[in-house]
């Protein structure tokens, strides 16, 4: 559960994720996630729909979603890439948007687009089990199972890595045939659990 202290300012949160609050709060559904008409159309087209509400007031507000683990990310001007389903709550000052992810999206079954959060402030992302934060640097690229990936920050190039061989075709797959390889400088968040993915069985 996430507790947010508000003193007259606002946060954006997943619709319906409030579980309790004390003090004075106003909840307002933000059509289109507060990204304006263009953002709305983009989200509709890309399938990264996100119903967001704005919470404003004085006091403490508690957020939770299906008992999943909450991880806080501090942003200082960098960009956070996260699946819209994993984003729980952000500072109202952070800009959200959509971006093309390429092949990774197709392999995780989450579509070809992902949500970006940009600016200075905090964001809360949810994961099945506490996320492990892994640093990627030039010498140490990281490979991640698409089902365990939840978010990343920094300047990272993702490439899609496949270990599909003729053995996969005769049913002797390794079960780890698809990975996303991250190269560059940044942080990757992985969860200790795997979503069901298209590539997961191969």
């Amino acid at each position: 559960m996430l507790a947010v202290d508000l003193t007259g300012d606002a946060v954006k949160a997943k619709n319906g994720s409030m579980v309790a609050y004390d003090g004075q709060m106003a909840f307002k559904k933000m059509t289109g996630g507060g990204e304006g008409l263009r953002g709305m159309v983009t989200r509709r087209l890309t399938g990264e729909q996100m119903t967001v509400m704005e919470v404003q007031g004085h006091g403490t507000c508690f957020f939770a979603d299906r008992a999943s683990e909450i991880n806080l990310v501090n942003l200082r001007g960098e960009k956070l890439y996260v699946e819209s389903s994993n984003l729980l709550c952000t500072d109202a000052g952070l800009r959200t948007g959509t971006t093309f992810t390429g092949l990774r999206g197709a392999s995780t079954g989450n579509g070809l687009f992902t949500t970006t959060v940009e600016g200075s402030g905090q964001a809360a992302i949810i994961s099945d089990g506490p996320a492990v934060v892994l640093r990627v640097s030039a010498q140490y690229p990281l490979s991640v199972d698409p089902g365990a990936y939840i978010a990343h920050t920094g300047n990272l190039q993702q490439s899609f890595q496949s270990g599909v061989t003729f053995r996969t075709l005769i049913g002797e797959g390794s079960g780890e045939a698809f990975q996303i390889r991250f190269e560059g400088e940044g942080l990757v968040y992985v969860q200790p659990s795997e979503r069901n993915t298209i590539g997961g069985d191969v």
């Binding site: 990281l142 490979s143 991640v144 199972d145 089902g147 365990a148 390794s174 079960g175 780890e176 795997e194």
Partner: peptide
């Protein structure tokens, strides 16, 4: 199978 989540 499927228990590896990431590796360096």
């Amino acid at each position: 199978k499927g228990k590896m989540i990431s590796y360096y």
